[in-house]
Amino acid sequence: MDTANFFLQALLTADMTIRVSVVLIFACLAGLFSERAGIFDIGLEGKMLISAFFTAAVSYQTGYIWYGVAAGIAASLVFALIHGVASITFRGNQLISGVAINFLASGLTVVIGHAWFKKGGLTPPLSDAERFHEITLPFADTLRDVPILGPIYADVISGHKLLVYVAMLIVPLTWWLLYRTRFGLRLRAVGENPASVDTAGVSVVRYRYAAVLIAGVLCGLGGAYLSTSQGAAFGKEMTAGRGFIALAALIFAKWRPWYALMACLLFGFLEAISNLFPNINVFGLFEIPVQFTQALPYILTVVILAGFVGKAIPPRAGGEPYVKER
C-alpha cells in the first residue's frame, strides 16, 4: 500500500471512529454519573434503545427533529426514573432493575412501533428535515488543500452531525462538573461514602436521583444519535450491545471522564476497523478474524477488571442501597 493510499484509509478510519464512538461516549458518561453516585446501571442499553425509537418515531410523525429528540430524552428519563424508584426509593437490586429495563425497552419499542407504523417494529425512513445534518466547520473547504492537516481538518474534524460536537463538549463539562463544583464533590462522595455525606446534612437520595436522571438525559442523546444521525430510521435492537460496550469502556476508563473519552474512541476504533477491514492480514503471515476485533473490547475489559494491567476500583458504595440510620 503506498503512502497516499494509506493516508486516505487512515482518514477514513479516523472519521468512522468518531462517528461510531459518539453513542459510546454518551452512554459511557451516563454510566459514569450513575455509578459515581453509587447506582449500577446495566440499563444503559435499554434507555438508549427506547430513546432511539421515540426520537425516530416522533421526528417522523411531526416532521421536526427537535420534537423527536425531546421525546427520546423524555422516554429515556421515564426509564431512568423507574430505575431510580426501584433502586433508590425501594432499595431494590440495581442490577435486576437494569435487566428489567433492557427487557422492557426491547419489547416496548417493537410492540409500539409495530402498532404505530405497521412495519414490523421499524420506523419509516426519515427524510432530511427529520434528521441531523452535517455541519461544515469554518474554512473547512478552503483549508482542504493544506497538506496533511487540511484533509484532517476538513474530513475528520469537520463535517459531522451536531450531536457529535455535543458529545465532545460534554466530556470536559462532565469533568468540570464532577471535579470543580460542589455538586460534583457531593455526587462523588455519595458513591464512595454515603453515610458521611448524610451526616453532613446532604440528602443522599436527592443526589442519587440527580445522577440517575442525568444518565437518563445522556442515554436519551445517545439513542437520538443512533436513529437520526448514525442511521436514518429506527431498527429493532439497533443499539446492538453498545450500552454494554459503554459499560466496558467505563471500567476501562476507571470511572474518569477524560479516560472515558479515550476508551470510547479506542472501542469505536475497533468497531470502525471491523467494519472497514473485516479480516486483517498481518504481513501475509496470518489473518486476524473479524470476530476477534469485535470481541477485543470485552476481552480488554476482562483483563483490566482482573487487575492484570492496572487495577480498576469501582466507587466503593456502588450497588448498595443507602439505608439511613435511625
Binding site: 426501584a86 429495563i101 422492557l104 426491547s106
Partner: peptide
C-alpha cells in the same frame, strides 16, 4: 415482542 414486555414487568 409483547412477551418481552410482560417478562420485563415480571422482573421489575
Amino acid at each position: 415482542e409483547v412477551v418481552l414486555v410482560i417478562q420485563g414487568m415480571i422482573i421489575l
